[in-house]
Design a protein around this nucleic acid. Sequence first.
DNA 1: TATTGTTATACTCTATAACTATA
DNA 2: TATAGTTATAGAGTATAACAATA
Lengths: 153, 153
Amino acid sequence: TEMAREVWQEVLGYFFAHRERTVEAVQALGLTPGHMKSLFELDPDDPRSMGEIAEALACDASNATWMVDRLEERGLVERRPHPTDRRVKTVVLTPEGVIVKQQMIDALGRPPDDLVALDRAHLEALRAAVRLLPAHPPFSAPSPRPISKRAVS
Amino acid sequence: TEMAREVWQEVLGYFFAHRERTVEAVQALGLTPGHMKSLFELDPDDPRSMGEIAEALACDASNATWMVDRLEERGLVERRPHPTDRRVKTVVLTPEGVIVKQQMIDALGRPPDDLVALDRAHLEALRAAVRLLPAHPPFSAPSPRPISKRAVS
DNA sequence: TATTGTTATACTCTATAACTATA
DNA sequence: TATAGTTATAGAGTATAACAATA
């Protein structure tokens, strides 16, 4: 419908107006957009294989190797052998990786000044409204980790 | 405030969930993100200098040269001499560039399916709310062109 | 001399293809 | 033989520095 288009264009316009700020926030941590996407997928306790990372990032396997190399050089992630399949390498966040990931999430999630400056009434209306948006993964995905999950598919 | 943060994070999360779709829409037109940003800045009747383009895209002047080269090869833009300063080259959209720009805007502005599928009541509430967002340039900026503007600053 | 844009060059990120080691 | 990951290589995109033309 036409209303959906209006809503989407407003959201897109507002995001584009602040896009530069989010890019800068990531760069300030010395991370590239690719690193950012990788960190969102990784955790200390949920090992991911290289193949899973490549799939999640929708990139080539060789590119995943390259990206994980860079993250490993910075000490943010660690490659580990797979318990049963010696072809597979799994990747987990290091303690420093956890810290940087949290810094990244904090920086990205900080609202723009012009939004903070809005009336309380407007903010309440906005908050009620955005909760009507279709379900989507929370941007600060706190690693949904079911208790019993095998290490790697 | 905390409410502003919640609102921002919901908007960000919703956008991220559909980010891939927008990238694909641009790629389908054979455009890179850099081209996309360039087209947003260009128009048929509002010549921009190379320097202005580099500034608007927050990139190096040499990179602007490179990007305009690519757009010119595709016939979407045209370099023209500046009327008074022969050092300056100005860039305008060609007729074909206008068409492709409009296709890009249409593709980007098409709302996600899950938004279109929402109840009419929810959509009305969302539309009313997003209009409360702080002022920002409309994403499909229809080339704000004051009648009397000198060609290039 | 200062400024505009380009060219020369190098570095980052991404992909395809060939390769190594397991299974 | 097939699969997981890496390495070799090439290309797009970005930046810095040197350069040419013009102011």
